[in-house]
């Protein structure tokens, strides 16, 4: 594993594929929208081809895939200071039942018009990995050491339709803690988060952090788009609910956290790749494991819409709850066993 340089470097020799690559159907975030508004034409390597972004005469951003002789205009969405494109190999418009939620309460698209939330602390990196490998971090908390330790923890994955939601309540996962806290940064003691994948490539997390001296409300957006089959751009943005007047250390905390989350995800992806390389294959897992459920759900974005099956979209829940003490379970089941024995004697 190695990090590759961000554009415009070519990504090296790639063997020609017999089958053209298929990229996911869904909304993909291309990052902060103001970057595309400098009057020029922006060319990005995306979806195995070149993606051209520019502002039109009405100052609306437009996106076009330059695929051979038939360029394809993409549906776009600009909101909350971010620019999204709808990618569908079948060329259909975005569905009504999958919309990216508005995150800012203000009407302005720009960060500085929002009094409730801070500006985005935004980080991007290019990673030599396939998009499916990035997805898996959403279920990995289920295997975290927390689950086997005696810590109070509530964790749940829900897959339904085109949404995948992750609930987490407990001590913040160690990989998300600030590694290098600034002098004003307080340690995050507890986290309550609900994160949702809106389709295959955009995850929005609503976080409530309990710190020593205050609570911190944050929204974290994690998104990726494929450059080609082996490379992708991974991005993380954090905004925090600001106090009046805004506290400068909140901004520092947000920026530090964005860096940390990006580091954590790239670290997780690397560990996965190393693991897969070491064992030669993924460990077998049953149909009821969260990884298998994630794969079933994720596969819907890589088939034609008419081929999406109920197995891919029907609601599946995976829950880990250690907040109900084990001894309560044990006591109630022990009592039940005794009752049964007593009843059995009475019956005999």
């Amino acid at each position: 594993m190695h990090m590759v340089r961000v554009d415009p470097q070519p990504l090296g020799d790639q063997s020609p594929h017999a089958d053209p690559a298929r990229y996911a159907r869904g909304w993909h975030c291309l990052g902060l929208s103001h970057r595309f508004r400098d009057g020029g034409v922006h060319r990005l390597a995306a979806f195995g081809v070149t993606l051209q972004v520019q502002a039109d005469g009405q100052d609306q951003l437009t996106a076009r895939l330059e695929a051979g002789h038939s360029p394809q205009d993409l549906s776009c969405l600009e909101q909350d200071g971010l620019f999204y494109v709808w990618h569908d190999p079948q060329g259909n418009p975005p569905p009504q039942d999958l919309t990216i939620p508005r995150l800012r309460s203000g009407t302005g698209a720009e960060d500085d018009e929002d009094l409730e939330w801070s500006a985005w602390a935004w980080k991007e990196t290019t990673l030599a990995a396939s998009t499916g490998q990035v997805m898996e971090h959403v279920v990995h908390l289920a295997d975290s050491p927390h689950v086997t330790e005696s810590e109070q923890l509530y964790f749940k994955n829900v897959f339904e339709g085109q949404l995948a939601t992750q609930y987490f309540e407990g001590p913040l996962h160690h990989s998300y803690q600030l590694q290098d806290p600034g002098q004003n940064a307080a340690a995050i003691q507890l986290a309550d988060s609900v994160a949702g994948y809106y389709g295959p490539a955009v995850m929005i997390a609503q976080l409530d952090y309990v710190m020593e001296d205050r609570n911190l409300d944050a929204i974290v957006l994690t998104a990726h788009y494929p450059i080609d089959e082996q490379h992708l751009v991974l991005m993380t943005g954090v905004m925090v609910r600001t106090e009046q007047p805004p506290a400068p250390e909140l901004k520092t905390a947000a920026a530090g956290h964005a860096t940390q989350i990006l580091r954590s995800i790239t670290g997780a992806v690397r560990a996965q790749l190393d693991d897969a390389a070491a064992t030669g294959c993924r460990a077998a897992c049953g149909a009821s494991s969260p990884v298998a459920a994630l794969h079933r759900w994720y596969s819907q974005f890589f088939v034609d819409e008419q081929d999406v099956s109920p197995q891919m979209t029907e609601r599946f829940e995976y829950e880990v709850d250690t907040t109900m003490p084990m001894d309560l379970w044990t006591r109630s089941s022990a009592r039940n066993l005794i009752l049964r024995r007593v009843n059995g004697k009475q019956l005999a």
């Binding site: 919309t99 689950v147 994160a195 609503q206 109920p310 609601r315 599946f316 829950e319 880990v320």
Partner: peptide, 28 residues
């Protein structure tokens, strides 16, 4: 004890009384 997996069908979801017919918003 602490781990539960639930596989729903669309039919069961329609029957569920706790599931709101319409979500109040679109955030996680």
């Amino acid at each position: 004890w602490e781990q539960t997996s639930v596989q729903w069908t669309d039919e069961a979801l329609d029957l569920c009384r706790e599931r709101p017919a319409r979500a109040t918003g679109n955030l996680p």
